[in-house]
Structure formats: structure tokens, C-alpha cells
Amino acid sequence: MGVLLRAQGVSKSFGGVQALREISLSIDQGEIYGLIGPNGAGKTTFFNALTGLYSCDRGEFEFDGKPLKVRAPHEVARAGIARTFQNIRLFANMTALENVMVGRHLRTRAGVIGAVLRDRATRAEEQAIEVRARELLDYVGIAGRANDLARHLAYGDQRRLEIARALATEPRLLALDEPAAGMNATETASLRDLIEALRRDGITILLIEHDVRLVMGLCDRVAVLDYGEKIAEDVPEKVQKDAKVIEAYLGGSLA
């Protein structure tokens, strides 16, 4: 299996704070790659740099063997990288179905003229968008809520909806920013099933997570960030025993 995403020396600073320091990592096709670290370690900054919300000061990304030169967020999505957000960002006043339909925007074509004339091609496309959106809602397990406004969904369902919306863009790499945050044990367990199903269906996953049990149980490899630096990268069992990781999480002076 080849490398899907490679980050090379990615750095980003805000004022005097070095949020990311020469981060290099590579994610293989089809793996679940965990990104962990204490609060403020730079995990979300890395996500934002990857998905084009921030431009990085130095360094570059390579996706599927090609340099990811495009830097606008929608171009990153077009290249095949989709994401969810740590603080859920849904289109609150649209229905669940409409949220996912927006995700199809990228892979569809209808313009103003098509929309007004509603010719056969446009109608067929609209139909296909809706069918696909319903499939995805079903896939993440919230088909029954299709016509509810996104803001009326339960918290766990909102997380699922965000994943469905991201899937609608047909990503090869799905970046999940703390998908289990605020979930109870049952919800986390079913989220875990969902992520594993995604992997089985050929989607590579980059996962930021605080829930250590979820990360350790799910991920093939894990990278640990601390103060913007990558301090470890390995299979979960080894990372857990890494002295630097333990120090980062528990504080150095205890030793």
C-alpha cells in the first residue's frame, strides 16, 4: 500500500507562538492514523493547514503522489480531502438532507441556467444528489432524521451528519477532528464501528482524538504532538510506552 498523504516540514506560527514546528509525517493508503497530544499541541492547527484554512509558513503537503499546491479550502476538498470540525459546524437551519446535499456541490455541475430552466440533465442531477445524500444519511445511521433541521438533531447525530456531509464530497482522506468529544460510552462505541466501516470501504482516516482508549484501539499508527513538535510516531502499543509521550502528558518534573 502506498503513501496517500505526506507532510514535509510543515511550520506555522502565530505572532511569537510556534504552533507547528517542522512537522513531517506520512499516512498510508487505507490506514487509520491518529494524531494526539495535550491541549494546544497544534493538532487542529495541523488540520487547518492541511485543509487550506491556514497557509503554512514553510513546508508542503503531497497527496496521492502529487504536491498539494492548491491552497484554497474548496480546492483541497476537490483534491479528495474532507474534514469535520472540533466544534461541529453544520448548516444549522438546513435539514440534515440538505446539509449532505450541499456536500455534493463539488461533484455536481448545475449552474444558474440549469437551475432556472430545470432541463432534463439538471433534474437528473438533482435526483442523483438527493439519492446519494439519502444513502449517506443511511450509511451513518441517521436516515430517519433526514427532514429535521440540523440544529434540532441530538449531539451524536450532529457528529454523524457532519461525517455524512464530508463523505458526500467523495474524499479519499477523511480528517476527523475530535469526533468523540462529548460523547458517552455507547455513542463512542458506535462511532468506532462507523470509523471502522469507513476504513473497510477504502477511506483513509486521519483522526485527532482525546479519548485515548478509542485512539489506541482504533488506530494503526499514532503521532504525538507537543508544543507544535512531533515527539513520537509509531504503533499505539509503542507510543503508549514512549518516555517522551508520558512526559508530555504527565509533566516532566514528576520523574
Binding site: T51, G52, L53, A72, P73, H74, A77, R78, A82, R83, F85, R89, L90, F91, A92, N93, M94, E98, M101, V102, G103, R104, H105, L106, R107, T108, A110, G111, V112, A115, E125, E126, I129, R165, A166, A168, T169
Partner: peptide, 20 residues
Amino acid sequence: RIGRAWVAIREDEVAAKACG
């Protein structure tokens, strides 16, 4: 498709960008 994109921008511009 266009109308949904407009409303998506109104609702959350960052998420709209991330949706492509």
C-alpha cells in the same frame, strides 16, 4: 445546487468552504 450553496455560505462560511 446554487441556492443551497448560498444558504450554506449564510449558515457557515468556513464549513461551506470545507464542503468544496
